[in-house]
Structures are given as C-alpha cells and as structure tokens.
Design a protein around this nucleic acid. Structure first.
Lengths: 340, 340
DNA sequence: TTAAAATATGTAAGCGCTTGCATGCAGGAA
DNA sequence: TTCCTGCATGCAAGCGCTTACATATTTTAA
C-alpha cells in the first residue's frame, strides 16, 4: 500500500509540472532533458527530499547495482582490507556491496549465495575455488556473474583473481629448507571445504618431496584461532620429533603458536622457527615479528571488483573479463632462523 | 524488459497449475495453502529453481528486509566482531546486512546513508552519536529507523546501544592514577567528527581534574595507524615532560606507541606504561601484552540488531525498542606498572 | 436436510519506475 | 510556403509481487 510519507515520482512530477517520464530521464540521463526543465525538476526533487524507490527501479530495469561478497569470516582480518578495496572500487562505479559470511562452511555459503541473490545482487565475489556440485550447479543454472578470489588455477571455469596458494606455500617451504631446516611441521587451517588451506599444505609437501632429505614430521589442522593453534603446537611437540621449523598456513595460527611457544619457554626462532601466511597487521606486532608470506590483498580486492564489474556490465568494446594471477612475496622478519 | 531466463511467479503458477496468488501465499504464509497444493507448488519451485524477484517484492510490500550498517572503517578490527554479531542476529530474522564505511568522515557518512537508503535499507546502524545537523535532519525527515552503537548518553533522541566512552576512559585513567602515576599523556584518535575519541579524552581529563596532583603533559591526536601513533609518541617524548604513563584511546594506537618505544630502547612498562582501549586481538599478542579496556563488542552487535529489528517491525506487543547501556571492563595485562 | 461458517483458491489492482513510441514544436532546406 | 528533421516531452505499458476481495468448496451445526 502507498506510503504517503515517502514522495514518489508522481509527487515530484506534480510539483515540477512535468510528467514522471521527464523526472526519470532527468535522474538517469540528464542530457535528455532541457536545461530549464532540469533545473525545475531538481528543485522539486530537493524540496521533497525525493529518493528513487529501489524496488521500483529494480523491477523496471531488472538490475540492482548491488553485488554480494561472501567471505569465510568477518572477524578474520585476512579478508578485511581486500574487502575494503573491493568495496571502494565498486563504489567508484556506484555499485553497492552486500556482505555475507559463511563461517568456512559450504552449506552456509550456499545459503548466503541464495540469500544475496534474492536480495537482488547482480554478481558475487566468492573466496576460493572448491565448492560442492550443488553450489556450482546453482551458479550455473542461474548464470550468476561471479568472480573467485584468494585462489588461482588454470582450469577453473569462473574468472579468478588471486594467487596460487600451492605455489606460494611451496615457495615459503623452499625458503625454509634453503635455510637448512630439515625437520618441518605444519599447522594449517581445516582442509575440509577450504581449498586454500588444502593447497597450502600440498605446496609444502611438494617442497618436501623435491628435497628427499627433508622430513615432514607433523601436519596439524585446526581452526583459525590462537587457542586452537596453541593446542596444535602442543600436539606437535608431544610427538617428540623435534621439528626445527613450523610452517603455518596463516598468521593467526603462527601467532597462536608463537604465543604458546613463549609460554612453554621456547625461544622463537632460536629453539624453533615459525612462519606465517597472509601478512596481516599481527605479523609486525609480535615479538619477534613474523616472517610470513605477503598476499596482495588490496590489489586482489580492486582487481576482483574490476573483473566483476566487467562481467556485470555488458561492456562497451572492452576486453572480456579475464582471470588475473597475482604474486605473493616472502617477507623476512624475525621468526625464521638460518641453520647454516 | 522481461528476462525470459529467470522464472517468475507466473511460470511457477503455470507449472503447478495454480494461480500466482497461491504461490505467493505458499512462500510467505504456507499455512494458508492446503497440504497437497503446497507440495505441488514446492515441486514446481524446485524444478524451476525459482527465486522471488527482490524488486517486485520490495515494491509490493514496501520493505526489503535489509538493513545497513555504516562503520568508520572496515580495516580496523575494532568493529569487525561487533559487526559479525550484528549480522548473525539479523540473519536469524532473515534480514540481510549492507555494509558501508565512512572513513571517519561525516560527509562520507552522509553519502553512505543516502546510498544505503536508496538501496532500500529498512533501517540503519550508525556508530557514535555526534553528527552534523544535515545528517540528523535527513534521518528525521525520512524517519529512518536507526540505532547508534559504540556510544551511550542520556539525552540522545535515537536509540543507543553501547557504552559511555567518557566514563570508561575516566575509569582507566583513575586506575592508572591509583597505581601512582602522576604525569600522564594521551594518544587519541582525531576528535574531529569522532565523539568516541573526543569523549575518551574528556574522560581522562575528568580523572585528572579530580586528582589535582596529577598532570596531563600532552594530548596527541592522530589517525588509527601504527605509524601515526609512533609519530605521536615521538612528539610526546620531544616535550621532555617525562610522563610515566600514556593512555591511548585505542589498542592500535597503544600498540603503535609500544612498537616505537621498543625501537627507541624504552622498556614498557618499566620506563613507561601504556594502556589501550577496545581489547582487540592485537592486545594479547604484543609483548608485554596490553593492559586495556574491554568493549563488549559482540553483545553490542547483538543487542543493536535486536533493537533495530524491533524498530523496523511494528512489533507485536513487545516493548518498544530501548537504549541499552553496556559496561566496559579493565583488562589488566603487562603494560601498566604500579609506581607504589 | 439446510444454513452458516470455515477453508481454499482465484482475480485483479496497484506498488514506483523506466522506456518505446507518439506527439508537438521549432528551425532549416527546398 | 511546405516539408523534413530533430529535439523535448508526454503517454502508457509492463517489470514481479502481494493482498483485499470475490468465489467456490468443504465442514459443521441445527
């Protein structure tokens, strides 16, 4: 039923003494309306405080200028600055961002996808490349424009903007090995439904395999919290295999392990080296500061937004949206020691 | 123009052999439709992969089940977990969250408010209580349901869910003073357009005033980054007033100051005590871990969502939405030393 | 048995906006 | 003058959905 409180096109039209069509044109395509009329209309709009009704417009043009992003967790600083950059880039094109979080859970992600889409999202940003067939089918069936981030891969059918987790992990592991470490352990996120965690483990295993005299004494998976990482370190130490370096698949895990090591009276890196992944704020703050892998978050967010916008706008002569691979860098700080 | 790709109510109705009205009822009020029909409809919906069109619905019921939140910054972990709780609570009521960020800038906030509203947000979460008249007028004129968080106060016309920044700041300052500190300095966020930063300063000043033998040797404002806090510490030290404690109005600032102190060869807390505010992750991670003020973020997010939902739903007999004041707690860790 | 009440479903109007088409009008070319 | 062109504007259909109301069917009561 009519909300008499909120002015609509007709009200503006009446006040300005023109038809609703002109108002609409004035808003969406100002050149199509003559100067004096435009001024009159603008005055009417201002004086009524008119704002176009979102639903009406969405219905008419079948587009919302809204995109959704579903990240595994909002609490995790890992995604924050990437998302911020994503949003800023969208805003430049007058597109609004809807955010959902999946809690690292595929079925929650599916629900969020449906929810954001039924909220009218024109496109989606998703994290990672592995998801259940059900989700994939859904995306395909509804031909949802989407881009994947925080991952990369050659034979993915969706556009991807990110980095190769496996290669990045292999690189840091190679680096650790090059410094003389021969007994490694891993603390990683739960692989289940998390391709990034999974590939990071595989990357480290790759590095180990190409160096036969390197031993991988433990692989511990846990949730991304200090407490869980702390417990994971305990489990590793309980094995009595004496790894000289622990490669963690996230800074949060690395810091959790460091905190625990400190509690146990172990010196990092003298007694044990620890490396992280992501290079979030935390990494610079711990003592010693964390040697880690820097992920180009901002660039990823920005580029992902560009690709998604391309996907949504049947664009004018521009090149089709393409996947882009970004590179990670190893940031050497204080938690990794050379054994040579 | 009709998107033939996307099934609409009519398609479902045709397939199920009922009218569109029944489909609509089946979706929104299943009890109103008989069991066998409901099953038939459900099957049709599933087989077509039908999803209601957001705009159509929004137009018909003049409601989007969407609320917006505008936070000063996404990068700052300060708001992350509160926002997460806010979102989760909304989700329980099938309400989606739109997020905008204002970059601690009133005019950007105003733009975001307009943008979220024109995206159809039914209500808004805003941070802090001070804003320009223009913004206030706008909210009033359009009678936008909204709740303020991260602040509290008696004579605010909007519902507020938060804590009293001034009191909380006074409390930590009193605590510092009780430990024997007589020369204090402040590192705070920029007060301009930021009531939280402002009130936290005032709270500390309150504490100082009631203790005449306490001196406030410096008040430095800066942006919320390690680098800026670091520079602020330098400016304070350059004064040669030798404060024994630096009260920071955010953990980020406190950690930035700590990092700088360490660079300068100053021991925290032996040479100088430092306190934070917020109790974000960072606080536990630095060495020594940070004595700070814990803000009940999750609770604030949850309660704010409840109040906002109340505001939006002309609800059934429930009590009207009320402001709620939450309490902060001082978390004693390692950066504040007793001088007695 | 019949009337009344309850239940299930359909009909159609209308939410606010955009846009193809029609109309009117001014200026220029023939 | 007449015709054409182009611009500014209006008209009205239609986007997909909800819902008051009308209608048809079943149940219940008397």
């Amino acid at each position: 039923m009519r909300d008499t409180n909120r002015p609509n096109l007709e009200d503006v039209a009446a006040l300005a003494g023109v038809s609703t069509a002109s108002i609409s044109r004035c808003i969406n395509n100002p050149k199509k309306v003559a100067e004096p009329t435009r001024l009159r209309i603008q005055k009417a709009i201002d004086s009524l405080g008119y704002m176009p009704h979102f639903g009406g417009r969405a219905l008419a043009i079948n587009r919302t200028n809204t995109v959704g992003a579903i990240i595994p967790s909002m609490e995790n600083a890992v995604f924050a600055s990437g998302l911020q950059a994503f949003q800023e880039t969208l805003n430049d094109s007058k597109v609004t961002l809807l955010v959902g979080s999946s809690n690292y859970n595929a079925s929650q992600e599916y629900d969020q996808i449906r929810s954001l889409l039924s909220q009218g999202a024109d496109g989606l940003l998703l994290i990672g490349k592995d998801r259940p067939k059900k989700t994939l089918d859904f995306l395909e069936k509804h031909s949802v424009p989407h881009v994947l981030a925080w991952c990369f891969g050659k034979n993915i059918s969706s556009p991807v903007v990110g980095f190769d987790n496996q290669k990045a992990a292999q690189k840091i592991a190679d680096h650790v090995i090059a410094l003389g470490h021969r007994k490694l352990a891993i603390i990683a996120g739960l692989r289940e439904g998390n391709d990034r965690a999974n590939e990071r483990i595989i990357g480290i295993q790759d590095a180990q395999k190409t160096n036969p005299n390197v031993e991988l004494v433990a692989i511990e998976e846990c949730k991304y919290s200090f407490e869980e990482a702390s417990a994971a370190l305990d489990r590793i130490l309980a094995l009595n295999k004496n790894p000289t370096a622990i490669i963690c698949s996230s800074d949060v895990l690395a810091v959790g392990a460091m905190l625990r090591a400190k509690e146990l009276g172990l010196s990092v890196p003298n007694d044990i080296s620890i490396t992280g992944f992501d290079d979030i704020n935390l990494a610079q703050v711990v003592t010693p500061s964390l040697t880690t892998v820097r992920v180009p978050q901002q660039e990823m967010g920005r580029k992902a937004a560009e690709v998604l916008l391309d996907l949504i706008n049947p664009n004018l002569g521009k090149t089709a949206a393409q996947s882009v691979e970004l590179m990670t860098t190893i940031i050497n700080r204080g938690t990794l020691v050379s054994l040579q």
